[in-house]
Amino acid sequence: MLDDRARMEAAKKEKVEQILAEFQLQEEDLKKVMRRMQKEMDRGLRLETHEEASVKMLPTYVRSTPEGSEVGDFLSLDLGGTNFRVMLVKVGEGEEGQWSVKTKHQMYSIPEDAMTGTAEMLFDYISECISDFLDKHQMKHKKLPLGFTFSFPVRHEDIDKGILLNWTKGFKASGAEGNNVVGLLRDAIKRRGDFEMDVVAMVNDTVATMISCYYEDHQCEVGMIVGTGCNACYMEEMQNVELVEGDEGRMCVNTEWGAFGDSGELDEFLLEYDRLVDESSANPGQQLYEKLIGGKYMGELVRLVLLRLVDENLLFHGEASEQLRTRGAFETRFVSQVESDTGDRKQIYNILSTLGLRPSTTDCDIVRRACESVSTRAAHMCSAGLAGVINRMRESRSEDVMRITVGVDGSVYKLHPSFKERFHASVRRLTPSCEITFIESEEGSGRGAALVSAVACKKACMLGQ
């Protein structure tokens, strides 16, 4: 009897593995994704193909990295998701002549009506938060230079001027797309009239992360975010950046690689679950690469896999709870928690219980395998993109072996128990001629924006502006 049951459990697990095998990517698959990513990057950089390229390769006008001589107080704003952060950054000489960066910050959550109302409502709310922060720190009387981390696709015309191309991540505030974001912020500050600010720089969160990590390690020339969304930036040779005049030196390019796949480059790798996630998203047909990796989508992918296993009578005796059938019910943090389970399955059992399920031991094991399959594919897909960037940098610099540091931020990278190990191992397999160091950014977005502002202020002083 026991043997029969054991055989049935083994057969069930084997069927589960057959279904989950769809998520496995072979090294040849990853090399294919990497080569296609490089081709799209090239198209994004070139003037004649930029418009139709899915990977936009947006110039950021960040050319210099901090040298350690900029000092002063800077205000930093960070808008990239449902939370908005205001930070005071003091850049100065530390002990023994070292450079020191001290920060104080406060988080504000953005109400739904500000995210989806008008641009005026959104930026009025942001300036209200700045006003509140300055009151708390008794700094209303000071006109501070301000660095703005704005983590949406922007076409820069200068370091302090950028046109919002399109909202992502659930934002829909009308009247912002096609307009200068810094102008919208300046107008809102003017409307309030109770404080003055000098907006000197606007950067993407990947750029802010790279600059913040450069402060720790001067070989950091790539910034990457794996959180709600997924994106990367890197220092490109100016001669390859056709959208900006000049051939000397390097400029940081914001790849906006989340949109890779929007022209069909990933079609052969998309599964039924991916198509369902895409169809029910706020932007169907867009940001397809990001939807395979980002935390906004990972939990939902797992939920759809679990429903398939229920329908195949391989999980929960073929019956799903009402909660499990509800879109968004299986949160991405559950994926991390399930994979963090120590082996007694308590954590998995508790999560499934909150979803109205009474799982068996085998159910718990199957749910864990589903989570591992989805998150491992995410790590491997992400590795193909980064390997594409790094191999490109090595080739354009004609280096036999390139040493490089990548600064990384984002909740999936930082909080998932195995993502970074799987990701690092896969990147290294795909970049055999590179020695890569990964560092995690601390308060990256805010500190990085302030350091970019410090560079901009120093330049302005040198130019006598």
Score class of each variant (00 low, 15 high):
234 Y>E: 06
192 R>A: 07
351 I>E: 12
78 D>Q: 01
389 V>R: 03
174 S>F: 03
46 R>A: 13
262 D>R: 10
360 S>E: 06
77 L>I: 03
418 S>R: 13
298 M>K: 05
80 G>W: 04
92 G>Q: 03
449 A>I: 01
310 V>S: 14
138 Q>P: 03
187 D>T: 02
354 T>C: 14
198 D>C: 04
367 V>L: 13
330 F>H: 04
82 T>G: 03
41 M>W: 02
141 H>N: 06
227 G>H: 02
252 C>N: 07
268 E>D: 09
342 T>Y: 10
416 H>R: 05
447 R>A: 08
108 Y>M: 02
464 G>F: 10
43 R>Y: 13
316 F>D: 08
269 F>N: 12
28 E>V: 09
46 R>F: 10
156 H>Q: 07
315 L>I: 04
208 A>V: 02
184 L>V: 01
87 M>G: 06
70 E>W: 15
229 G>P: 01
276 L>R: 11
382 C>T: 09
175 G>C: 04
225 I>R: 01
169 K>W: 02
254 N>H: 00
465 Q>M: 04
13 K>F: 15
326 T>Q: 14
251 M>T: 00
206 T>H: 00
393 M>N: 03
152 F>I: 01
127 S>D: 01
28 E>D: 09
196 E>V: 04
150 F>T: 02
43 R>I: 08
77 L>W: 01
228 T>H: 03
204 N>F: 00
117 G>A: 09
330 F>P: 00
183 G>S: 06
370 A>W: 04
309 L>S: 07
307 L>V: 10
67 E>K: 15
5 R>F: 10
118 T>D: 05
67 E>G: 09
124 D>V: 02
433 S>A: 08
114 A>S: 12
57 M>H: 02
461 C>K: 13
288 L>N: 11
327 R>F: 09
288 L>A: 08
124 D>R: 04
351 I>D: 11
338 V>Q: 04
262 D>N: 08
373 S>E: 13
139 M>W: 05
223 G>D: 05
116 T>W: 03
122 L>G: 02
206 T>R: 02
219 Q>W: 10
398 S>E: 10
336 S>H: 06
174 S>R: 09
405 T>H: 14
148 F>C: 02
346 K>D: 07
309 L>F: 05
297 Y>P: 13
233 C>E: 02
271 L>C: 13
406 V>R: 00
430 L>M: 09
257 W>N: 02
351 I>W: 07
156 H>R: 01
144 L>Q: 04
380 H>M: 09
162 G>L: 01
173 A>Q: 02
234 Y>N: 01
239 Q>V: 14
319 E>L: 14
415 L>W: 13
28 E>I: 13
229 G>H: 01
308 R>A: 06
9 E>L: 11
244 V>R: 00
299 G>P: 13
298 M>A: 05
75 L>N: 02
180 N>L: 04
272 E>R: 13
78 D>K: 01
74 F>M: 06
194 D>V: 03
171 F>N: 02
333 R>H: 14
377 R>V: 05
206 T>M: 00
209 T>Q: 00
353 S>D: 10
68 G>W: 04
154 V>T: 10
401 V>K: 15
389 V>Y: 03
65 T>V: 09
175 G>T: 10
355 L>I: 12
168 T>S: 02
112 E>V: 14
301 L>M: 15
227 G>I: 02
66 P>N: 14
435 E>S: 09
428 R>W: 10
252 C>D: 00
127 S>R: 04
121 M>F: 09
348 I>Y: 06
368 R>H: 12
161 K>E: 07
320 A>R: 14
116 T>I: 09
273 Y>A: 11
446 G>D: 00
444 G>C: 06
422 R>S: 14
70 E>L: 13
310 V>Y: 08
439 I>P: 02
88 L>K: 12
299 G>S: 03
189 I>Y: 03
194 D>P: 06
151 S>E: 04
294 G>D: 00
285 G>V: 06
103 T>W: 06
53 A>L: 03
222 V>F: 04
42 D>I: 11
401 V>E: 13
10 A>D: 08
52 E>V: 10
249 G>H: 14
363 D>L: 06
25 L>P: 08
29 D>V: 12
12 K>H: 09
250 R>A: 15
